[in-house]
Amino acid sequence: MENPKFLFLGIITIFIVTSTTRIVQCKTYESPQYTVVHKESDFEVRFYRDSSWMTAPTDEISFEKATRDGFHRLFQYIEGANLNFSRISMTVPVLTGIVPGAGPLHSSAYFVKFYLPAKFSAIPPLPLPELNLRPDSWKCHCIAIRKFSGFARDRNIVKEAEKLALSLSKSPWANSTSTDSGYAYSIAQYNSPLKFIRRVNEVWVDVSGSNEDDCKSNLVAAF
């Protein structure tokens, strides 16, 4: 007869593995759709399709404070602080757009953005007025991306943006950066503040092109 002790341990092991699998599955968040059109060792260019976002403007001077303030209001919105009382699933990334200006972080204002799941993209639930949020529809366009790890802080985001700018200056997209969005650059964050290792952040800079062929044509033109 099989030893009851080992049988019990086997059941516990199966339970832990099953539970862990469920937790991993629950952490698969919806993201805006894109296609990578060019990739190098330190950056890539993506073509993002049409998407809908909810935006929290904030006039905080600090990037970190602006992101916390904006996301706090956005979190209330997705938890039901909207006119439909709708609960909205968490998505990634949380995007902080940095408007060009003379501020200490090359900014004059910030806009914190939450990507709306596809089921809410056509008609987003209206936020409660006191949250000071507004919907933002993105048309398809091209974005240059640089990944960086750790936490996105006031002390490192400008350096990461400058590294992306330097990489772009040596690439086919040297003269293709676009200011149509009104942002100098944006910081995309993919992880909870409670995650301390293997964090993923990105610097986003718009480059010219309103469709996938436009993105690729910049590369082709350089050869």
Results as ranks from 00 to 15, higher is better:
residue 29 Y to E: 07
residue 171 S to N: 07
residue 131 L to W: 05
residue 84 N to E: 08
residue 133 L to E: 00
residue 59 D to C: 01
residue 98 I to V: 14
residue 20 T to L: 09
residue 203 V to G: 11
residue 60 E to R: 05
residue 59 D to M: 05
residue 73 R to H: 03
residue 117 P to V: 15
residue 165 A to W: 00
residue 10 G to F: 11
residue 89 S to N: 09
residue 159 K to I: 11
residue 100 P to R: 01
residue 3 N to A: 10
residue 37 V to I: 12
residue 127 P to R: 12
residue 168 L to M: 03
residue 138 W to Q: 14
residue 209 G to P: 00
residue 176 S to H: 06
residue 7 L to P: 01
residue 143 I to L: 08
residue 88 I to N: 05
residue 177 T to R: 00
residue 138 W to A: 11
residue 118 A to D: 13
residue 77 Y to E: 03
residue 205 V to E: 08
residue 182 G to I: 00
residue 119 K to T: 14
residue 171 S to Y: 13
residue 184 A to T: 11
residue 91 T to K: 10
residue 83 L to D: 15
residue 181 S to Y: 00
residue 167 S to R: 07
residue 35 T to F: 15
residue 41 S to Y: 13
residue 48 Y to W: 01
residue 11 I to K: 08
residue 35 T to W: 09
residue 152 A to N: 14
residue 137 S to V: 06
residue 81 A to P: 14
residue 204 W to H: 14
residue 100 P to C: 03
residue 77 Y to S: 04
residue 200 V to D: 09
residue 141 H to L: 02
residue 56 A to H: 03
residue 14 I to L: 01
residue 129 P to E: 08
residue 52 S to M: 13
residue 5 K to A: 12
residue 100 P to V: 04
residue 158 V to I: 11
residue 37 V to F: 11
residue 64 E to D: 12
residue 181 S to F: 02
residue 213 D to M: 09
residue 137 S to R: 10
residue 107 S to P: 03
residue 132 N to D: 07
residue 98 I to E: 08
residue 134 R to E: 11
residue 109 A to Y: 05
residue 201 N to V: 10
residue 196 F to P: 06
residue 163 K to S: 09
residue 154 D to I: 12
residue 116 L to P: 05
residue 115 Y to H: 15
residue 155 R to H: 15
residue 83 L to E: 15
residue 123 I to Q: 14
residue 205 V to R: 06
residue 31 S to W: 08
residue 104 P to A: 09
residue 36 V to G: 10
residue 120 F to Q: 15
residue 87 R to Y: 06
residue 55 T to N: 03
residue 180 D to H: 02
residue 6 F to C: 09
residue 76 Q to T: 04
residue 171 S to R: 08
residue 131 L to H: 03
residue 37 V to C: 05
residue 192 S to D: 12
residue 189 Q to W: 09
residue 82 N to W: 06
residue 95 L to W: 10
residue 147 K to C: 05
residue 37 V to P: 02
residue 61 I to N: 10
residue 8 F to Q: 06
residue 75 F to E: 01
residue 19 S to H: 02
residue 223 F to V: 14
residue 107 S to R: 06
residue 129 P to V: 08
residue 97 G to V: 05
residue 29 Y to T: 02
residue 43 F to P: 06
residue 70 G to L: 07
residue 201 N to Q: 12
residue 212 E to M: 02
residue 57 P to W: 00
residue 63 F to K: 07
residue 214 D to S: 09
residue 85 F to K: 14
residue 19 S to N: 02
residue 77 Y to H: 07
residue 77 Y to M: 04
residue 135 P to N: 01
residue 74 L to P: 02
residue 208 S to Y: 04
residue 24 V to Y: 05
residue 214 D to C: 04
residue 80 G to T: 10
residue 182 G to Y: 01
residue 102 A to M: 08
residue 116 L to A: 09
residue 211 N to G: 01
